[in-house]
Design a protein around this nucleic acid. Structure first.
Lengths: 206, 206
DNA sequence: CGACTTATCTTAGCGATGTCAAGATCGACG
DNA sequence: CGTCGATCTTGACATCGCTAAGATAAGTCG
């Protein structure tokens, strides 16, 4: 039942690396059982310890979930970075990475942005992974301004671009928007078509 | 503790109009206690009945929540309709109504679009209120096409406009976007500025 | 080496939750 | 009046997050 990574394991009683193991177990449970299956007791059992053991490493369930979200932010940035250079328009690429991550990790994405962890994880006192992702967007917008909307309030463009991709991701996950409504085969195709159409009018800048 | 509306009440044992009363109680609890305070037992107590009474009218908690979401859709449409004609650009007005509703009813909005009720309430087999709201958007886009993005795939424009307003609403609710980051006083001001900038380039159509 | 300290983990239990089974109540209808 | 079906109550079960009390073992210091 253990997740397998106990590098500092010492004996059967003391786990050795329980904190990290709990986070890994939680991520694994979240991926194949979703949010409803993610109970503290299930996480503890998956790591081979008793129900109350997590409280030696996390003050409560929210603290564990904040760690899980942090893992999510790291993977999120990696996913966006992977897609960033595969597109002629870097903003389109960044957007694809954003939405694709959401589609590939629905439960994790929901946890990261549900706002239930907003007290612990918000933009003001956020961890580095989240800020790194936000900085990607700021940089891409800076190197390729959205002048098709005019040059007033240029700093709003980051919030706008973020809203577009976040809205697409959320609505697809909630089944309010789907590929078959637009006679497309996959949601990925829908995302590409939307981002290419609504993020691409930046040629006139040069 | 009762919500007050028992028009068909018959006696102390049989409530008379429990189904509607439960929905009303749930909406009220959701508004001033949020999702975490919305337990079936609390709803039952607020309507003055025992814990298991709701199961005579709803198969489970999700069924009740689906009813609550339906109430939310009705109010949602009313809110958008109220804002629709107050703007020169009707799309901007519709968007304001969309986001303002989310800001004014955060818990209800979250319930309506969280996707947890997606099996019960989706766009395919949705109730009239939801479809009415979607039709508002379709009509506004039809009478004022977003030709600034080109005229190919025009049916994607509804999904795009929806994504923009939904993304703005969700990110503000999750505290990822806020007015003070843009030196504005209120979130409403931020919403207006964004929608006017990114939804207004439709003059060249006429 | 041996005793003390501290972090870690277990067992037991509390209150709250969603849900179900059994039975009580009462209006409607013959 | 008597039966029936819908409605509601009581009581219970499993699970949940969380806490208290105590067991275990690793580290430290004499």
């Amino acid at each position: 039942m253990k997740t397998g990574n106990h590098p500092a394991k010492t004996n059967a009683y003391h786990h050795g690396n329980l904190r990290q193991s709990l986070v890994d177990s939680a991520v694994a449970i979240l991926e194949h059982s979703g949010v409803p299956g993610l109970s503290l007791r299930a996480v503890a059992k998956a790591s081979g310890v008793s129900q109350a053991a997590p409280y030696s490493h996390f003050s409560n369930k929210q603290s564990l979930l904040a760690e899980v979200a942090r893992v999510g932010y790291v993977r999120f940035c990696e996913r966006m970075a992977r897609e960033l250079d595969r597109d002629d328009n870097r903003l389109v690429g960044l957007g694809k990475g954003y939405v694709f991550f959401a589609l590939e990790n629905p439960a994790l994405f929901h946890l990261m942005f549900s706002g239930e962890l907003a007290q612990l994880v918000n933009v003001d006192e956020i961890d580095d992974a989240f800020l790194q992702g936000y900085q990607m967007l700021v940089d891409v917008i800076a190197e390729n301004p959205l002048t098709q909307f005019g040059s007033d309030l240029p700093h709003l463009d980051t919030a706008y671009a973020w809203s577009v991709v976040h809205g697409i991701a959320t609505l697809i996950l909630g089944n309010q928007i789907s590929a078959k409504r637009y006679n497309l085969n996959t949601d990925e195709e829908l995302v590409e078509k939307m981002l290419e159409k609504y993020f691409s009018a930046t040629e006139e800048v040069t």
